[in-house]
Design a protein around this nucleic acid. Structure first.
Lengths: 140, 140
DNA sequence: GTTTATGCAAATGGTTTGCACTCGA
DNA sequence: TCGAGTGCAAACCATTTGCATAAAC
């Protein structure tokens, strides 16, 4: 499985009705390779090559999230993280090490019964958030 | 089951090594009666009778959370909510209606296997967050 | 009399917005 | 060309902090 090229990113943007710009392509390149969800600041550091404005970055992150190109991840750190949202890498949850901040994907999701229960209670369009934290092996 | 009185709150504070002040007592009174976790703003409204400063409120909320008198709740709204943390009302999770913002407690928690799995992976002091959102019956 | 809590004012930090300009399609 | 995307500067908003004063124990 090889990485997507700029060309793929361009068609991705086109499919979503978004214009292709240097910042957006660079953003997709970085996030496509990321193993863990990245903060705006981490992204900024990796974007040194491309000139861009902070506001533009946040606008792009927001637009991409709305277009389902990215997921905005909240791990209770006081800021957001962003990750690619593609078929290879769909809905999942994380655990973050409270010491070294390493983030891993966790291989389970909220049990179906929970959703069923809430549906019976009359809730529609239910979604959930779940994340874990702890001290990882290396930090023990 | 009757509500705690100021006197009980005073001993609660004493037990935690905290000083008893008008604001703190008023805060405990309000939160002890609250059915859902409240925002700092909601609390401020209910505190009209007592004069206090915003910074002091946040300091009290922080102190109380550190002393386990309160839980700080994050439902991804962009601000925090606070709720009493007592034996009658321990660890639990919420669902918030995305339309009317009503919050309910949900009668389940993350399965034990999840924690076991993460423990086997080498994680210690694991904690979790889980919350739901959806459109409630009344808002359908 | 100490220690801790409070008020005031100013700062913080992530994120957003208004507006004029620029660039991609 | 024409609307979407960008840069700049300023605003936002929940929360925090420094510091001097005041209240609790």
């Amino acid at each position: 499985m090889k990485h997507q090229h700029d060309q793929d990113f361009e068609s991705l943007l086109r499919d979503k009705g978004l214009k292709s710009t240097p910042l957006r392509l660079a953003l997709l390149e970085i996030l496509d390779l990321a193993i863990s969800p990245m903060t705006a600041e981490e992204i900024t550091h990796r974007l040194k090559k491309v000139s861009f404005d902070r506001a533009t970055l946040f606008r792009a992150l927001k637009t991409f999230t709305e277009s389902q190109i990215l997921n905005t991840v909240d791990l209770g750190e006081g800021f957001h993280r962003y990750e690619r949202n593609c078929e290879l890498h769909h809905h999942h949850h994380h655990i973050i090490c409270t010491s070294c901040k390493k983030i891993e994907v966790v291989p389970f999701c909220v049990p179906d019964e929970f959703k069923k229960f809430l549906t019976k209670k009359g809730y529609r369009q239910i979604s959930h958030r779940m994340d874990f934290s702890g001290i990882c092996k290396s930090c023990t």
